[in-house]
Design a protein around this nucleic acid. Structure first.
Lengths: 275, 275
DNA sequence: CTTGACTCTCCCCTAACGGGAGGTCCTATG
DNA sequence: CATAGGACCTCCCGTTAGGGGAGAGTCAAG
């Protein structure tokens, strides 16, 4: 017979844990001294203790372990074959947790990389009008009419449908020839890795284009100043504007915080043809 | 101003949770009626509530959230850029949990598949001597001398070194020409997917061989009866025994329970040459 | 004024132990 | 035999992130 301390050393379970298992009737000492209340464990109980520890390391709850143990100490012997159904059920549960943490890690990763990218963008930015070629881009888009401030609805539609495959910064395509406040015609787009059109959402590749671009820093409602700047640039050089224009939201309200609108970053892309 | 019930509906947090966050000073209602004690939340607090919910869904603890919030309500505005270092640290923590659950799921999977395989083996078994070709097998082996009952030491050596790559049932190779109890010469082997010899453990491919085999059901100490049976079969037919013989432990003490020795299953494989 | 919905505080519950207080028991040594 | 130190006992509280419910007070509509 082992005292609780000896049994603890043999099994690797702490004294506290052994007392707790006693209270929970998971592992009751073979003998308890009636005078002192000292617990004494029989060497044959080491095996049970080891089994409990093994099950615990597989994240089996004490209640389940108790059920398993009582079921099989009744029948006399413990065998893994008898608990294989339980283990299968338990495995699916563990796989759910696994999937959960995969989601969490992936979300964290996307938030972090998004922030880091925005940071480098912000550092490299010079906030002057530029001319550059924009690469072709596969997007899922939802075209809508209304105010620009309603674009959240469109983005959440696209997000819900293609959440898994999003691969870049949100953008909108502006189909109006001139600025409209009330009944604007635009398309909320998310870059995707792959996907197919369904319902009101179309997936297609936006063509590569030669664009005049400008980074706008600050809240959306001050973006008209930047538009004026870039449009006058285009006019000065006699370029022809092609439709639709794009606004790429490099940094806007985050997934966690709304953030400081003064730090928002939007790229205006106006596709043009040189004369 | 929202009452707690309205705020609950708007934010998706339960009333209980909101009261709890108040108590923890995570999210304190803008106004508390001094007479009734009713909590009233300002619409601007919806954003904070949303942020808390977002962080909670990423498994951030309330303490950490409180730290983040107090740090940044001090500076006036919340921005993800300011917590990116924290998120990175948090991400590594989440990845550890992820890895943990991957281990658990993998362990469960191996236990389950082991049991299921043993079960079908048991059903298909006829417990008669058979002749068959044994396939080549890549193993990691540790050769030792002593009693067969000491083989656990050898298996745990191999297991520790190649735990990741084990792919099959443990077996031992018996190099003695005749049965020895005291100073037996044998090698504890585990099939592996790949690996290289190091220290005292050699990795190599066991050749395919023509064997006389017999399934032994029951504890190891009764295996001599099965040996007698298979050896007399060999002798009757005048086959020549080649060394080393193998014992494959199809079912022995499990990873959780010691199991019932009466259900242990061992295959004796004696490589022979026909005359 | 009443009624029903809403809200308040207070207390207990979860899982699996860990920490510590205050007291008892065992065993070896002087 | 006395004592010292270590081992052991019970009891209580703490952890996380809330949930459940009791009993009492409050709000708004009819």
């Amino acid at each position: 017979m082992y005292s609780i301390g000896e049994f603890s050393r043999v099994t690797g379970l702490t004294v506290k844990t052994l007392r707790f298992y006693h209270e929970k009737k998971l592992l009751e000492p073979r003998h308890i001294d009636p005078d002192s209340g000292y617990r004494y464990y029989h060497p044959s109980q080491v095996e049970t203790a080891r089994a409990i520890a093994a099950l615990r390391s597989l994240e089996v709850s004490l209640d389940d372990i108790a059920a398993i143990l009582s079921e099989h100490t009744a029948s006399g012997d413990l065998d893994e074959a008898d608990v294989v159904e339980f283990l299968q059920a338990h495995k699916t549960e563990m796989e759910q947790r696994l999937a959960h943490y995969q989601n969490v890690a992936a979300s964290l990763d996307s938030i972090i990389s998004k922030e880091l990218e925005a940071k480098t963008r912000m550092q490299d930015a010079n906030f002057e009008v530029e001319e550059k070629n924009v690469e072709p881009l596969l997007v899922a888009g939802y075209r809508m009419k209304g105010r620009y401030s309603d674009c959240g609805k469109g983005f959440s539609k696209v997000g819900r449908a293609f959440g898994r495959h999003i691969a870049g910064k949100a953008l909108i395509l502006i189909y109006d020839e001139e600025y409209k406040e009330e009944d604007a015609d635009f398309e909320t787009c998310m870059p995707v890795r792959k996907g197919e059109s369904k319902d009101e959402i179309t997936v297609r590749e936006l063509p590569g284009q030669f664009c005049v671009t400008l980074l706008h820093k600050g809240p959306y409602d001050s973006i008209s100043r930047s538009y004026n700047k870039v449009l006058s640039y285009v006019k000065d050089r006699g370029y022809t504007i092609l439709s639709p224009c794009r606004e790429v939201y490099l940094k806007g309200p985050g997934m966690i915080f709304k953030g400081n609108p003064k730090k928002y970053l939007t790229e205006i892309q106006i596709p043009v043809e040189k004369p």
